[in-house]
Nucleic acid binder design. Sequence first.
DNA 1: TTGTACGCGTTATCAA
DNA 2: TTGATAACGCGTACAA
Lengths: 337, 337
Amino acid sequence: MPKNEASENVTADDVAVAAGVSRWTVNRAFKKDASISPMTREKVMQAASQLGYLPDLRAAALASDKSNLVALLVDDFANPHKLVMLERLTRALRSRGWDTLLVNTLNAEDAGPAIANASQRRVDATILIGIQFDDEVLAAALGARRLQKLIIFARTSENPNTISIAVDDAAATREIAQYVLDRGYKRPFYFAGPRTVSAHLMRKETFLAHWLKHTDQTVPSMSAPSYDANIAAEMVGHQFANQQETTRPDIIVCENDALAIGTIDAIRHQLGLRVPEDIAVIGFDDVPLAASPNYKLTTYRQPLTAMADYLVDVLEQSESKDMTRTFHGQLITRDSA
Amino acid sequence: MPKNEASENVTADDVAVAAGVSRWTVNRAFKKDASISPMTREKVMQAASQLGYLPDLRAAALASDKSNLVALLVDDFANPHKLVMLERLTRALRSRGWDTLLVNTLNAEDAGPAIANASQRRVDATILIGIQFDDEVLAAALGARRLQKLIIFARTSENPNTISIAVDDAAATREIAQYVLDRGYKRPFYFAGPRTVSAHLMRKETFLAHWLKHTDQTVPSMSAPSYDANIAAEMVGHQFANQQETTRPDIIVCENDALAIGTIDAIRHQLGLRVPEDIAVIGFDDVPLAASPNYKLTTYRQPLTAMADYLVDVLEQSESKDMTRTFHGQLITRDSA
DNA sequence: TTGTACGCGTTATCAA
DNA sequence: TTGATAACGCGTACAA
């Protein structure tokens, strides 16, 4: 343990006295591009570490009105992809000097209070990460004027006051639909996620439109109330129990991997069928488990690292107009379809 | 959108003018147990919502030296159980008025800087959540004197300066070992997680000791470098390839579910064997996937909600002596063993 | 390169 | 119950 006898609050003033300089020189020593002589800085830093001094970021934020802090709102912890997103985002943020407030949007009614909460911490930006927001939530977020930036990550929004950083869902879905066509599947079924009034992904609609256009046929579908593999398994087991080979789908296209994993489990263990021989499955996200020898899931991988890096770019930009950007990922073909 | 015309910083002063009271009365209105007449408070709150005023928590923290903020340090995002922990912790914290700083400990060398980072935000406590800390990390954390409390969640630590909130690993492991004995398994194999100098779980040691005591036999084992299902699958596939039925284990006891899931995948898809008929598997944590029709994993469930609630109790306590506490969970028996 | 008022928005404490 | 003074620790702007 370092021998920092000063157990109480060490401030820049204390360091100033110890180093024989003024308090402002101490602060300069901790600023990156400050005009200060290397010798003075060295002297200050020595005294600082001697006393165990580190600048107080609360005070800095208060004085400069810049917190280097963002709020990450998350509402759906059942989806394993959230963990991957959290890792990539916190990594990109922290390695570039940003801290992260993780806000659990406890339930549908809590989105407003959650945003108010973040705004009281005077974060520089609020990030909705794959959240089931609706227009009310957005209005609440935009109403809390202190939120400099409102970023929708991994989802698109048409609201001009938000910045959306996401994969091009339409293009990705068309690529998936074309793959399904090219592989010769005839009876696809679309398994969508939660459908809110304004915030659901357009993947289902895109897939159905593409299929209709190319085959003149309508694709049946259903929607899960949440991205939860166990719930998905139950739904699939229920939906396709006792179906004839000729009427059941030959491929189930899932809105994401959480649903796809549950679907595969149900096909094997509840319907007693094989993947992909009897029913094939496609997912979206490429969660770690998708690559496991058990699932070998064909899925669409988003460029999360690039998206996270871009998010930090946006934060560091003073302007926030026209920052919305879509990315392109890639279809990862494995054995499931 | 609410009609809060005042777009810039609204402070208590503005509200005071609007409500015709002093600034201190405004702040009182927002304090829970303040001596203020209901009428005055009502008047203040009305003016406040009119202007869109919410107290600035940075300033409050600075003035009161109490931030109502904790730092959650996480180093291992491959383990799906982390997501469950994050959900339970943020839920308990936020519903009782605490905010959460999520700090990604980017790599082994980064633990120190991560802690320093949190201490600069003047958090009221730092929580190590299932982290692979070692003595150096603890020393660094304790060296940053501003951390009022250092809490080790879901792991035990003998360091008297820390508060550990965890399940009784020894008791849990003995229960597992006894179950394995009772079910008549003869050749167990222990699959452990990362082994650091000072911070690994004692589950493996406990299991081996229990088995030795009751059967006089030594249990073979191996250790994965991280709690990652895909890595676990590879290791198991490698370890038991081409083994005779008589020499291979009849049960693999895993330090947690991430390893157990990989183990099951490998047994089925790489070794071509059945679970539990050829090799049984036991995990620890009861992640959501453990209940899926595919894994039906026998595992040990920790009382996470109670643990999270207790954590907030600890935060609200002024004393921090003798706050370490262990919990008891329960063995969830499913089909895998 | 270094030093100096002043302000950031709140809380603690005491006085009215 | 209310009002007022003095911190809390640092940043900005400017002067030395």
